[in-house]
Amino acid sequence: MNHTLPPITGRCTLVGAGPGDPELLTLKAVKAIQAATVLLVDDLVNDAVLQAYARPGARIVHVGKRGGCKSTPQAFIERLMITAVREGETVVRLKGGDPFIFGRGGEEVEHLREAGIECTVVNGITAGLAAVTSLGVPLTHRDHAQGVVFVTGHAKTGAGAAEDPTDWRALAATAHNARLTLVIYMGVSGAGHIERELLHGLPGDTPVAVVQHASLPHQRHLVTTLQGLQARIADAGLASPAVIVVGDVLQGLAAAALPVDAGRFGT
Rank of each mutant, 00 (worst) to 15 (best):
E108Q: 02
V91F: 08
D47H: 10
N123C: 15
K70R: 15
G88F: 12
Q230E: 15
L44W: 00
A262P: 06
V122Q: 01
R264K: 13
V85S: 12
A242V: 08
K70P: 13
A48S: 13
L229Q: 05
P99Q: 03
G247K: 01
S215G: 07
A155L: 09
A256Y: 11
L238Y: 09
G252A: 14
S189D: 13
D235K: 14
H62N: 02
V85R: 10
E197G: 10
C119V: 07
A191I: 06
T152Q: 07
I184L: 09
H154M: 10
V49H: 02
N123G: 15
T83N: 15
P138Q: 05
L5H: 15
V148I: 11
T152E: 08
K31C: 06
T9F: 14
G158L: 08
A159P: 12
D143Y: 14
E197K: 10
Y185A: 08
D205H: 09
F76T: 13
Q34K: 12
V109T: 01
V92D: 01
L44I: 03
L238I: 14
R113G: 11
M186A: 04
Q34E: 10
G187K: 01
P6V: 14
G153P: 02
A17F: 04
G97I: 07
F265N: 00
R264G: 07
Q212T: 09
G147H: 10
F102R: 06
R142I: 06
A236Q: 14
R66C: 08
G158S: 06
V211P: 08
V260G: 14
R220H: 11
V246T: 04
A32D: 03
Y185S: 05
A48F: 10
Q251R: 15
V245D: 06
T181D: 06
V223P: 07
D248H: 09
P207N: 08
V210R: 09
G160Y: 03
S215P: 04
L198N: 02
L80F: 11
R264A: 11
V210P: 10
H154A: 09
Q146S: 14
H213L: 03
L50V: 01
